[in-house]
Write a protein that binds this DNA or RNA. Structure first.
Lengths: 152, 152
DNA sequence: AATGAAATGTCTTGGTC
DNA sequence: GACCAAGACATTTCATT
């Protein structure tokens, strides 16, 4: 990860569909050099994929929430099973397994508040290991589009 | 948003760098048709951008946490000011403004636990409007790579 | 709206420094 | 590693249906 690699990563985070030529022009290197760098970054697992960012409303997920979930007992097998269960639910965008706390946090996206309520009562509350949850509707989310590499 | 649009969105979520030709072949339409659809989706704001997914360790953010923050007073101006402040911090990947609750949740990524501690004490605790926060280190995060469109 | 075909531009390889 | 050049391939425009 020299500075050229870091720059490539930054530019592809901002716009994953720019051509290899454009990338090379911006960086002041030959296209073939740039291409080989990108391949190497991909081989090494630094670049994990390329994804289109889609408007949440178009995905019918205009209502989003964070749901902090408590489960018991906190054994490895119960934690793993709940993690798998939650991650497979279509409403769940992201599952955070938290150490230190006793909790999961689920980032949920649904069409409307009705569907949020249905999710909580029909999906979550029915699991025997779930002993409680707190739901916070997301009023606004500000996403950092291009997380920079932090200095050591 | 007919079915062809939905399919395009789904495929570009999974792989934003596939060529327009490949997209068209998969969908069974002409490349020019496919291109025009993608442009229309972009014009309408359905496709908001294309981003490379980068390994968190390579960005020096091997340690991540969710920080639930309480602020007072809960006036519009104080909320907006804190939202702007938090979102501009390099350690903050995402800022959730929560209605219903009285809280923000910050998704934070830092190189190590020392830097997490520094962030909490030097950045957050120094703000006068911050009356408290709870930090949960993220043990694991399972991200849904391709959030499907939910039925109405 | 969708298509085919042509011009324009890009990707990618292999040889060279 | 980085670069150049050239053939293979993709993008994009536009006239047509």
């Amino acid at each position: 990860m020299d500075q050229l690699d870091a720059e490539i990563v930054r530019l592809l985070q901002a716009d994953a569909r720019q051509s290899n030529r454009e990338l090379a022009r911006t960086l002041g290197v030959a296209p073939s050099t740039c291409l080989e760098r990108v391949r190497s970054l991909t081989r090494r697992g630094v670049i994990r994929g390329y994804h289109a960012e889609i408007d949440t409303a178009a995905l019918n997920r205009g209502v989003q929430a964070l749901v902090a979930v408590q489960i018991r007992p906190l054994s490895r097998s119960v934690i793993d099973a709940f993690s798998d269960f939650a991650s497979a639910l279509p409403e769940v965008l992201s599952t955070f397994v938290l150490s230190g706390g006793d909790d999961f946090v689920l980032h949920v996206g649904v069409p409307d508040l009705d569907r949020l309520h249905m999710f909580l009562t029909d999906r979550l509350a029915k699991r025997r290991e779930v002993t409680g949850f707190r739901t916070s509707v997301i009023f606004k989310q500000v996403h950092q589009a291009v997380p920079e590499r932090l200095p050591d």
